[in-house]
Design a protein around this nucleic acid. Sequence first.
DNA 1: GTAATTGCAAATACTTTGCCACGTA
DNA 2: TACGTGGCAAAGTATTTGCAATTAC
Lengths: 164, 164
Amino acid sequence: MNPNASAPSSSQAHAPASGILAFLLDRGFKRTHALVCLLREMAADPHPRTLAEWGDCPSLQERSGVTLYRLMLKLEQAGVVRRVNLGERAQCFQLLLTGPAPDYLVCTSCGGLEQVETPPEVRVLEDNLARKTGWKTVRHELEFFGVCPSCAENSDATVQSMNL
Amino acid sequence: MNPNASAPSSSQAHAPASGILAFLLDRGFKRTHALVCLLREMAADPHPRTLAEWGDCPSLQERSGVTLYRLMLKLEQAGVVRRVNLGERAQCFQLLLTGPAPDYLVCTSCGGLEQVETPPEVRVLEDNLARKTGWKTVRHELEFFGVCPSCAENSDATVQSMNL
DNA sequence: GTAATTGCAAATACTTTGCCACGTA
DNA sequence: TACGTGGCAAAGTATTTGCAATTAC
């Protein structure tokens, strides 16, 4: 393995899962079934999912949860996958395909997701932190939480009917 | 209980734990030992800590973890406490004393914290989301992750000595 | 052949609920 | 007294490790 290789740049990152696979093979990963399937599934759906959810993908159902867990850790270390906290009990993972990782608006009622454009200022602050404060490898995580319109309606209805 | 009372405004929020206690009593909380001690401890250290860590405070050591857990949930519901994900397995809680909740720069190596000023643009975006998209009660969570200068040094030393 | 990967089983950690005793208003 | 609160025990869920069998190179 070559732990000093850097993660695929965003130009490579736009390539499909095969580009990432090549990068990983370069780093010493073996071209195993689990790896190939997981990358394919994660490339097919760029949104964050829990380990259990990824394991439910058809091509991954025969894989044990432990395997996915360890594989995901390695992918995270390799900089190919990121971990996101979306307020669920379990953490979510998503493939980093398109350069800068997206931020999300999360419905605390139904768990629905909506992608949000990262405010440029956050990126600037991130760069400044890295340059000015001596912190290394700075990344950010930004989530907005709220109740989506459709859940809000239902909730109003509930409040009325229950006279809360 | 009066679930419709709103959380203490930031003008009240600057008051010590006693102001918050009054607010909670108003909402139907009972002035119990656990509540008083927890508020005091949380007011004494405004930084986020896990349930276990709060439970380690001298005045709370005889309290059961379950009690703290349920109390914390109630405080969160009452809007007096917020929950933060700092990348640890356990979630952290902190008292909301000073109006807008602070954001953090977290060291992924030693777990150290440094407070970061929230970019105004994030607040603006938050407000816009609430006004323009129909989402209710929007809040945000923003964390920066990296390796703090002192951990970076140690890590360099390790790399050199281990010849990695 | 060698070293990474895999799966089973089990340990660990954190969260959550049920039930009854207790304390506060 | 009435109802919120406290604690014990236990269940539920997620994460993590050990070890032996397997697989890719």
